[in-house]
Structure formats: C-alpha cells, structure tokens
Nucleic acid binder design. Structure first.
Lengths: 121, 121
DNA sequence: GTAACAGTTGAACAATTGTTCAACCGTTTA
DNA sequence: TAAACGGTTGAACAATTGTTCAACTGTTAC
C-alpha cells in the first residue's frame, strides 16, 4: 500500500522530471480518498451486484424474487446484498417473512447511467 | 455466469411474485451490457489505477515519473497501464526512450467526479 | 408446539487479481 | 558496436473475492 510516498521501495529510475512529479503530487487527492473511491467502484465491479441494483431500481424486490430473476441461490444473492447494504447503496424493509430491497438514492443510478453512456462510446 | 436464466440451478423458492419478476425481467439490460458495465467499474476498482488516472489528468506523464509519484516499480505501473490501455481509458505518445500517457477522454473524469460527490455524501 | 419457509451467516473452495522478479525489446549515447 | 536506460512482458506468488453448502434465526400457519 502506501501510495505515492518517496521513502519506500521506489521505482529505480534515473532521470525523473521532478518539476512535473512535484506539481502532480500537490494536485493528487488524499490517499484515503483514493481508497474510498476505488472501494466504491469495486462494489460496482461485479455483474451480480450491478444486476441486483438494476433489479431493485424503482419497485422494491424481495430476496427470493431477485434470486429467481437472476437465476441464483438466495444465499448468493443475500451475500451480495450484505455488501451493498454495508456501503449504503441499498435500503431494506421487512414485511413478514420477506425483506424488500430497493436503491438507497438516485446518486448511484446517475453514475451507472453515465457509465452506460461511456460504454456505448 | 448465465444471469437471470430460468432453466439452470434456480433459487429453491416456493412463493415467487411472478408478476413483479416478469416485469423486472423485461426492464433488465442485456446480459452483455451488464458484463460490460461491471467490467468497466472493475477497472476503476483499484486504487493504483485510480491514482494513475488522477496523475495523468491534464499534463501527460512518462511511466518513470508515474512510478516515482506513486512509489511503485515501473513494472507494476506498466502492468496497470496495459489494463487502462486495453480499455481505451488512456492514450500514449512515444518520445525517444519515454512513453507519455494521458487520459483518453473527459468521460472518465466526469464519472470519477460524480463518484467523488457520492462518497462525500 | 411444530412444521415450513424467507432470509442470513460462516467456513470452504475455486477463480481472479496485483505485485514482484527476471528477462527482454527499442532507443539513445559513447 | 556496445553500454545504458525506459518501458514491456510472462511466470510465479500471495491476497482477495464470489459461490456453494450447511446450519442457523425469525416469522407464519397448521
């Protein structure tokens, strides 16, 4: 870990453009921001989780129905929902034996929408 | 794999809300779109690659300088640049012994910007 | 109460992934 | 030509991750 620190391992290069490197170093976000950012994208970087997000967009769905829709076991879906819950990407509401999940906010939908645009070049 | 197919394994649930499931199934994107989308996010889901994208935003940087900035070996950086190249997120220009990388387009910057907003709630 | 079902959870396993290491290619300079 | 350096690459290794399986909790219905 320990991103862009000067002391540790290093790159074994001889001729560094140090003006450029120094300028860039100033402009870089905090290390913790970079980790938060990549952690966020990591969650969207799985087709099961993205599918779940599309599924529960708009009308909420129970775990059983999501599993049926995606052709997966309840267990597998529940494990992924736990990850989505932990990151506050989804909310849930219990109703009898069922648990209904839906998107936590519109922010995620926006990001996915922008990414979809990018993919279609 | 084989998302939301009915024939295969299945979810072992008894009482499915089939109207909901059917409606959602219609609304779901193509399976290939879901994979493309998650593959795209997978690339942004690594702190080294996100750091590289921030670094080469604006002024291009050579591999050596990126490695120095991030405190990594040239090899590690080059491996990640290969992944970013393969996905057309970066472009490069050779100049003598150096190779200068920069962002391919503004689309990626927009998505990262939106994700940053989301993280800061 | 107890049987049945929806959902959750932890351990185990296979698959994927990021970095290291060593060897290599291409360009520059002596 | 040969040495030096920037950059790339493939194999190997460790670490992470997604699904399966089995056991469990909580709610409903008999």
């Amino acid at each position: 870990m320990e991103l862009y620190e000067k002391n540790i391992p290093a790159c074994e290069c001889e001729e560094i453009h140090s003006e450029v490197v120094d300028k860039k170093r100033e402009a870089m976000p905090d290390e913790s921001t970079l980790y938060d950012l990549s952690d966020f994208f990591k969650i969207l970087g799985d087709s099961t989780r993205v599918s779940i997000l599309f599924a529960i967009d708009g009308e909420p769905m129970c775990v059983c129905d999501i599993a049926e829709l995606l052709g997966m076991t309840k267990s597998a879906v529940s494990h992924q929902l736990k990850i989505l819950r932990r990151s506050d990407l989804v909310t849930y509401r219990k109703s009898g034996k069922n648990v209904f999940y839906t998107l936590a906010d519109d922010h995620v939908r926006d990001i996915i929408e922008k990414a979809l645009e990018h993919i279609k070049e």
